[in-house]
Design a protein around this nucleic acid. Structure first.
Lengths: 190, 190
DNA sequence: GTAGTAGTATACCGATTGGTATATTGGTTG
DNA sequence: CAACCAATATACCAATCGGTATACTACTAC
C-alpha cells in the first residue's frame, strides 16, 4: 500500500486540529489536505468526532505506554518521578503537535466535544499515576489517601511546563526537569 | 434602563462560551439566550469576534486591575507573591466561568481565533508580573535576567492550580495557597 | 415640530457545515 | 467465472453558519 488514506487522514487531521482547533477545522479541509474525498473519511471514521477519537486513541496510546513503562515503582520514588517526567517531556518534544492538541482539549470547556473526547485518555494517565502514588504510599506513610491529588498535581505541573515550552517561554531541558521534579517533591514531603 | 441588552449579551455569551467553547457556540444561540435578535448583537459588537474581544476586555480588565494592586513590590517578595496568588485564586473563585474560558483560550492552538483574542490580556498579565520580578531582582541578585521565565512560570503554576480546582481535583484553600507560593519560591531561590 | 440618531426587529443572503445516496472500481474468495 | 466486499468518487442534502439590507420606533437636540 503505497498510499494509506486512513493514516494520511489522521496525519493531516492532527496537524490541522493542533494548529487551529478541532471545532474550527472543517471535514472538507481535512479531506482536501489528505487528498481524498469525504466518503473516504466517513468510511474509516464514521464522523468527525470518530476521527478525533481515533486520532487520540492511536497517538495517545503511545503516550500512555511510555508513561506506563516509566511509572513502574520499585521503591525509589524520586527516581520514578524523574522517569515519568522525562517520559512526558520527551514525548512532548517528539510529538509537539499532538501534545499541543492534547493541552487544548485538556483545558477546553468540560461539555465541549473536544474535552469529552480526551477524557478517556486523561483518565488512563490519572489511573497510572494514582497507582504509582498508591504504591509509594506504602513506603511513605504521610502520603496516604492523597493519590488522586498527587496524580492530578503532577500531571498539571508537567502539562504547565510543556505548555510553556510549546509557547517558547521556557526550554524543556535537563535543568527544568530537575527543577520540576525537585519542586514537586518539595510539595509532597512537606 | 431596566434591560441592558448589551450587558445581557455579554453575560450569556460568557456562560455559553465557557461551557461549550467559543467556536462551538453560534451567534444565534447567544442572541436567543439573551432574548434579542442578531442585529442587536451586531450593533454593539460588530462581529462574533468583537463580542469575544469586548467580553475579554471587560472581565479581563477586572482581573488585571486586581493583579496590579496585588503586585506592587515594596521589598518583600514572598509577601507580594502571596498577595498575587491570592488575587488570582479569589478572582477565579468569584468568576469561575470567566476563568474557565480564559484557561481554554490560554492553551488553545496559537493560530485559533480564540487564542488570538486572549493574547492582549495574557500580555498585560505577563507585563505586570515581569515588572514585579524586575523590581525584585534589584534586591535578589541571583534573579537577574530571568523576569520573563519567572513571570510565565508563576502564571503557569497559578493557572494549573486554578484549572485543577475548576475540575474539582483540588481545593483553592489556604493550604494550597501556602503550598503553591512556597513551592514557587523554592524553585526561584535554588 | 422636525431632524437626527441609537436601538431593535423582520426577513433575507451566499457560503459552508457535517453527513449521505448512489455508483464504480479493484481485489479476494468460492 | 461469479459473487462479494472494501474503498473510493460524484453529486447531492437539509441545516446552519456569520453577517446584513431595510425599515420601524423612540428618544434627543435644536
Amino acid at each position: 500500500m503505497a498510499y494509506d488514506n486512513r493514516a494520511n487522514l489522521v496525519i493531516h487531521a492532527l496537524r490541522l486540529f493542533a494548529s487551529r482547533g478541532y471545532d474550527a477545522v472543517s471535514v472538507q479541509e481535512v479531506v482536501e489536505a489528505a487528498g481524498v474525498t469525504k466518503p473516504t473519511l466517513y468510511h474509516y471514521f464514521g464522523s468527525k468526532r470518530g476521527l478525533l477519537d481515533a486520532l487520540l486513541a492511536e497517538r495517545g496510546g503511545r503516550l500512555v505506554q511510555a508513561v506506563q513503562e516509566a511509572a513502574s515503582y520499585r521503591g525509589d520514588l524520586p527516581l520514578t518521578l524523574r522517569k515519568v517526567t522525562i517520559a512526558y517531556f520527551s514525548f512532548a518534544r517528539e510529538q509537539s503537535a499532538f501534545y499541543r492538541l492534547l493541552l487544548s482539549l485538556w483545558l477546553a470547556p468540560p461539555s465541549s466535544e473536544g474535552h469529552q473526547a480526551v477524557l478517556p485518555l486523561l483518565q488512563q494517565q490519572q489511573d497510572l499515576l494514582e497507582a504509582l502514588f498508591a504504591q509509594a504510599a506504602k513506603d511513605h506513610g504521610n502520603m496516604k489517601g492523597r493519590h488522586q491529588a498527587y496524580a492530578a498535581t503532577l500531571l498539571g505541573m508537567i502539562n504547565t511546563y510543556v505548555g510553556l515550552a510549546l509557547n517558547e517561554h521556557i526550554d524543556l531541558d535537563d535543568a527544568l526537569l530537575y527543577q520540576a521534579v525537585h519542586q514537586f517533591q518539595h510539595g509532597i514531603y512537606s
